[in-house]
Measured scan of single mutants.
Amino acid sequence: NQASVVANQLIPINTALTLVMMRSEVVTPVGIPADDIPRLVSMQVNRAVPLGTTLMPDMVKGYP
């Protein structure tokens, strides 16, 4: 099973992602692959992302 990117904390709308905000976890449904975490750094979320939420491609501005 492939690990996905999961919010490690509440991420407010328009926040630029940092490594501490994300963790990898095997979840269903599958979200953004954990391998993409380095690419996500400094990209902004377009909505508030609660703790434990799987990051989906449509939540991150400019992804992929």
Rank of each mutant, 00 (worst) to 15 (best):
I32K: 01
R47V: 12
D36R: 11
N46P: 02
P64K: 15
I13H: 09
A16I: 12
V41A: 05
A3M: 13
A7W: 03
L40I: 10
L51G: 09
V6W: 02
A7P: 02
I13V: 14
P29R: 04
S42V: 03
E25Q: 11
G31M: 02
L40R: 01
G52L: 04
V45H: 01
V30G: 09
R47K: 15
L40P: 00
Q44E: 08
P64L: 15
V60Y: 02
S4L: 02
S24N: 09
P57S: 14
D36A: 14
S24W: 09
T15K: 06
I11T: 00
G62R: 08
I32L: 06
Q44L: 09
I32C: 04
M21E: 00
N8R: 14
D36I: 08
D35H: 11
T18V: 07
I37A: 09
Y63N: 05
L55V: 07
T18A: 07
L55M: 11
A16L: 10
S24D: 08
I37T: 06
D36Q: 14
A16Y: 13
V6A: 03
P50W: 10
Q2N: 12
N1R: 03
R23W: 03
L19E: 04
V27S: 04
V49G: 02
S24P: 07
P12W: 06
A48E: 11
M59Q: 04
S24K: 09
I11Q: 01
N8S: 13
A16F: 13
T15M: 11
G31Y: 02
S24R: 10
A3G: 15
M59V: 06
R23Q: 04
L10D: 13
Y63A: 04
V30R: 05
T54R: 04
M21D: 03
P29G: 03
P33Y: 08
Q9K: 10
T15F: 07
L40M: 06
Q44W: 14
N46F: 11
Q44K: 13
K61V: 13
V27K: 07
T53K: 12
L55Y: 01
V6K: 03
V30Y: 15
V27T: 09
S24H: 14
S4Q: 02
T18G: 04
V5H: 00
P57G: 09
T15I: 06
N14S: 08
P38K: 10
M56H: 10
G31P: 00
M22N: 01
V41W: 03
L19M: 14
P33E: 05
L10R: 09
K61F: 11
R23C: 04
N46L: 15
M59N: 04
S24G: 11
L51Y: 14
A34W: 08
P29F: 04
Q2P: 15
V5Q: 01
M43D: 03
M22V: 09
A3P: 08
T15A: 07
A48K: 07
M43C: 05
M56G: 05
T28A: 11
L10A: 12
R39S: 09
I11L: 09
P57K: 08
M56D: 04
T53E: 08
I32E: 02
L17Y: 02
N8T: 15
I13Y: 11
L17A: 00
G52I: 02
A48V: 12
D36V: 10
E25V: 11
P64T: 15
P12G: 07
V30E: 14
L55F: 10
M56V: 09
V20F: 13
L10K: 07
P33A: 12
T28R: 03
V20P: 06
S4C: 04
T18W: 03
N14I: 03
A48T: 08
S42Q: 11
L55T: 01
V60M: 06
P64D: 13
S4A: 03
V45N: 01
I13E: 11
M59W: 08
Q2C: 15
G31Q: 02
Q9G: 05
V20A: 09
Q2S: 15
R39A: 10
Y63D: 05
I37F: 03
A48C: 14
S4R: 02
M43I: 04
V5L: 03
V30N: 14
R39N: 11
P12Y: 07
M56K: 09
T53H: 13
G31S: 02
T54E: 01
V45L: 12
P33D: 11
T18R: 10
D36T: 08
V45A: 04
P64F: 07
M43K: 09
N14T: 05
M59Y: 08
V20W: 14
I11H: 00
E25Y: 10
L19D: 04
Q9S: 08
L40V: 05
N14K: 06
